[in-house]
Each structure stands twice: as C-alpha cells, then as structure tokens.
Design a protein around this nucleic acid. Structure first.
Lengths: 337, 337
DNA sequence: CTGTTAGCGCCTTCAG
DNA sequence: CTGAAGGCGCTAACAG
C-alpha cells in the first residue's frame, strides 16, 4: 500500500553518514557540518523522503499537534477562529486536530473519553465554557490549554469584554433617543454557561440603569441561539401592548432574524424600529446592520501566538481582552416622533 | 510534564496477563477470554490508562487520522462540510487533521511539502480543484483520497450538478417572465479552476438558449467571490443603459451583495428587480432570498461514509451527485410592467 | 562534528 | 486462548 519503504537508514547509508547524523541534518539541530547537511538533504530530496512523524514522536515525546475544541464549526465566529488558529499553528509547524463538541452529550463524552489524549501537545478551547469537573478531566491530558474567544476556567485566554460590547450597542440606541429598548438574549439550553451570554445581558442592564431608564422584563426575550429564534422573539416583542422602538440582539444572526420579522410585518428598519446586533458578522455588512464589531481574526491570531509562546516557555501575557467598537450602519435611527 | 508513565506493561502486569493479551483485550481483537478482557479493561479504567496512539501507529502502520483539505474554512459552505465530515469520521474513530490551503502560494506549498504525509490514512479534499501535477503529488502520499462538495481529478466524489442548479435558478426567473437576466459570476483569480464556476455559468447560458433568449455579454459580470464584489457588480449592471430586470448570482453571498446595492439605490427587491442566488446559505433564509438549495450536510455525510467504505474495502458507490432544488422566497417576482 | 547505542510503547506473527 | 519475541522508524544521550 505505502509506496515508500524508505527510512532514515537508507538516507543515511546513501549519504554516507550515520543514522544519527542524518536525523540531525533533517531536523536542523546543532552540530552538523553544513556540507554534511546538504548532502543528507539532497539525498532525502532525491528519494523524496520525509521522516516518519510517528516514529519521531514516539522517540521524542512531542506530538507536534494541537487540538482545537469547538462547539459549532459551521457558525461564522467559530469557523473564523479555527481559520485563524490553523494559520498560525500550521505556520509554526503544528498540525491541527479538530474536535467538534456540540451539545451536552457530546461534551460529556468528549471529556470522559478525552479522544485527544496522548495525541497533542496542547489544546485550544474555542469559546467553550469549561466547568470544574471538565477542567479536572482536561488536566489528565497533562498538556497546555488555552481559551480563545472566551474565558474558560482559569486558563490563559484571549477574548473580548462582552459586557462592554453590549453596553456599546445599547448606549448607541439610547444615544439615538430610544427609551423602550428590547433585548433578545441568546442562551442555549444545551450550554447554559456559555460564557458570552451573561456579559451581553449585563451590559444591557448597565446601559439602561446608566441612563436612568427603567428595566422591563417584558422587553427581554431569551431564546436559543439562531436567526429563526430571533425572528420569533421579535414577533413576540411586536405583539406587546407597547412594543419597543429599538431592539438589541445578542448576535448579528439573531438580529437579522428580528429584521426579517419586521420586514414581513411591513415595518421599516430603521424608520419604524431600530435593530442592533453584536459581532460584526460579514453578513451584517451586506445587510447594512448596525452592530458592535469584535476582532475575530485578531483573537484567533493572538491566542495562537499566546499558545506558541507558552509552549516555547516564553513569559507571555496570559490574559488578553481585546476592544470592540460600534459600527453604525443603516439599521438604527432615532425613534419616530 | 506528563502525569502518566503508565504503559501497557503496567496494565498487563497488574492484570496478571502478558503484554500481548493486554493489547488484544484493549483492542478487542479476537481470541481473548471474556473474563480476561474484563480484568484488563477494569485495570485500565482504574489506572485511567489509554494506549499510546503513537506507539500503536508505529507498530501497526495505521494512523487513525484523516486529513481535511479546505480552501476557506470560514465560509459557510466549507465550514458546514467540515462539520459534517468531522462528525462521521470522529464517530468512526478517526481523528481529523485540518489543512487550510488558501490561495496559490499556499496551495503550491501544500502540494510540495505534503504536510499530511505519513500522518493520515486518507485525505478529503473539500470543493478543491486538483490538477494533474497536484494529483501526482498527492499520489505520493499513498493514501485514499476522496473529493467532497465538488469533483477533483478522478477521485471518488460527492457533489451537486452546478450546471443544473444554475439552470434551476435562471429557469425560475424566465418562468416569472424575465427576459433581461444578468449573471454575476464568481471566479476567483487565485483559483481559476474552481470547479463550481464553469457549471454555474453554463447553466445560465443553457437556460437562456433553452428559452430562446439572446445572451448579452454586457449582462455578465465576473468577480472574485464575495458580497462586496457582488455589490459592485450590481452597481455596474445598474449603470447599464438598459439594466436587467433580474439578476442571477453564483452564490447567495454574492446575491446579498447585489441586494444591498439595490436597496441603497432605492430600488425594491423584488418589485423593481429580482435577485436569485445558489446554495441556500442559512442567511438566505433570514434575508428572504430566493435561491437554489444544495444539500451541504448530506454531501458531507455521504462523502464521509464513502471514505469509510473505501477504507473498509467495501464496494461502495464512488460517484454521487446530489439533487438541488429551487427555494422560492421573497427576492424574486415577475418583472414590472 | 559524528557515530553507537538504547530505548519510545505497542502490535503481531509465531509457538504453545 | 495466551505468551514470547521481534520489530515499527526515529531521537537522544553518550562517547569519540
């Protein structure tokens, strides 16, 4: 099956050096004469040889791999994080092992079986809440852990301040003159301690009280994440005796769901009602949705570099919170009248 | 660093069996008394032991890993394919190695270095065009290759018929009565032989000629993939002396870009102009965009199962083309007048 | 700078 | 059904 039975010994022999030297040459470790290395490399090239990562790993103990643990690959935010991390890790010579852990069962299973055990040098949990017991299981792997796009347990992390982001969004609505501001909160029943939710809710209350506005539970809808749910939530808000003049959604997808309901109801956004989201999803730009931008790419890169630094033993910063900012587009305006 | 120095020997000793038996028990191979196996498993459980995949691999030759090669992780289609594949592969006990190969340089580098070499039992190229030389390089890996979400070289594949999908889209516009139908074609300069493009363009011409409509090069805009480019293309189409009454875009993202331009220009969709895309991106539903649905999840699962079958040596179907269908929403209507 | 020598931890015939 | 023994291919001291 495998077309190549070539091994390091063959290379060594052919290059007229010892196995050890060949190994050193191919790993550019210290202590190999330039000429010797050249020769070895040439032979390797010629025979189209690459060392067996497996054997190397068994002998060295390092895997050269890192696991990415993600709750939802196909959602933009997570996919973008994966993309960014993959890029810095692969550039550093690491292979990326992907673990999709979605839902309570999956998660239980993952932490129980620890499928990445003995397979990686580190794991990055992407926007993934980790409880005490889960952390304990992870410890078992005995590897470096970093949290990207959210804080988890007490691992080194890179994230944004969701509370601040939320406040930026709601403050904008208040600034425009809105006083009846609804919130559509995304809270997956499956992942009750999803880290972003509390912050994104708290920021809403912060903003309201900061402006001396009353809070009204009737204006708060809590739904599972997603556009359709957002649409339904908007429908409920619309059926209120006194509907809101503006809606703040925990995410752009949810906000777009709300917009759809409004459009279908014949209401104009933002003339009749304002809508704002969080994230700055690429489609927010396409749909002219006002939102709060969070630097996804940067978080991905920063967490990747943080991980590499830690692995390298450098004394790197282990808690990075990145700024977010309001992006005003065409879905928000002063209230009518 | 590693908290566990436990190895198979420890388990064997503790269970009072030989290394070989312990190995067999843990791999549930044939020829181990139920009782013996129980004992071994119990000890392993107790000591929280898992065999070293690395050592196992070195000895057995199998890696238990498959590589996913993707050109754009953060785009929904690809992310969804990855998600689906990951799910069936991980369920089958395989680990998933992710390789993001974006752009000409990356791609050259990937096929030159073959970073997945000797690391996987198979590779899945996701909607990834593979030329002759690239195929030759891949051969070097000596592993099973499957193409998912597009045909590549002559590998086993799962895909849709882009030409048919395109025709479904354009036929719909024609059916509504449109005669001046523009096309916004997405053709990355970086990936000139992106497999979907020709089909999605051809289907457009098929439909026009099928209906006896003239083709007009002025009505065809070719752009790199993306919403912004779609928006610009739409602007150009709008500046035509006689603008189209309907626009067919190669993808939903591109279509949404076009819609944005229309809205900003004060035109109503679909009253003033119709827009249709392809893919049925989740946000197409949120934005009430008419489109042609392609079964992404199913393609992912099918390709995963196909791969597993081939690996298993089963005599499975090696070319699957899945059906697409029109999804009429609110972005298309008969032309005015 | 280079060669020798042990393993790394397990799978797998091959006997028994 | 179980045990013994030989690698899998390479890295990492340790000597030269």
């Amino acid at each position: 099956m495998t077309p190549e039975k070539t091994t390091l010994v063959d290379i060594a022999r052919r290059a007229g050096v010892s196995l050890a030297t060949a190994s050193r040459a191919l790993n550019d470790s210290y202590g190999v004469a330039a000429a010797t290395r050249q020769r070895v490399l040439a032979v390797a090239e010629e025979l189209n040889f690459v060392v067996s990562p497996t054997a190397a790993q068994l002998a060295s103990g390092r895997t050269g791999r890192v696991a990415l643990v993600v709750p939802h690959i196909s959602r933009w935010f997570f996919a973008a994080m994966v993309e960014g991390l993959e890029s810095v890790l692969s550039q550093a010579g690491f292979d990326v092992l992907l673990y999709h852990v979605d839902g309570a069962d999956d998660r239980r299973d993952f932490f129980h079986r620890l499928p990445a055990r003995r397979k990686v040098d580190a794991v990055v949990v992407i926007a993934f809440p980790i409880g005490a017991t889960e952390r304990e299981r992870l410890e078992l792997m005995g590897v470096t852990v970093v949290a990207a796009g959210g804080q988890s347990a007490s691992y080194p992390f890179v994230c944004i301040d969701d509370r601040v982001a939320a406040r930026q969004a709601v403050d904008h609505l208040i600034f425009l003159g809105h006083r009846r501001i609804a919130m559509i909160a995304a809270q997956d029943p499956d992942e009750p301690n999803w880290p972003a939710t509390p912050g994104r809710s708290q920021g809403y209350y912060d903003a309201l009280t900061g402006a001396g506005l009353p809070t009204d539970d009737g204006l708060v809808q809590t739904i599972p994440w997603g556009g359709d749910a957002g649409a339904e939530a908007m429908a409920k808000l619309l059926s209120l005796r006194e509907p809101p003049t503006a809606v703040y959604a925990h995410s752009d997808e949810v906000a777009l769901g709300a917009v759809r309901t409004l459009r279908r109801a014949g209401l104009r956004v933002p003339e009749d009602i304002s809508v704002i989201g969080i994230d700055d999803h690429p489609l927010a730009e396409l749909t002219d949705l006002t939102t709060v931008h969070q630097p996804v790419q940067q978080q991905a890169l920063a967490s990747g570099h943080m991980l590499l630094g830690i692995l390298r033993g450098d004394d790197v910063e282990r808690s990075i919170t990145m700024p977010t900012h309001l992006v005003v587009r065409a879905s928000t305006a002063p209230p009518r009248g």
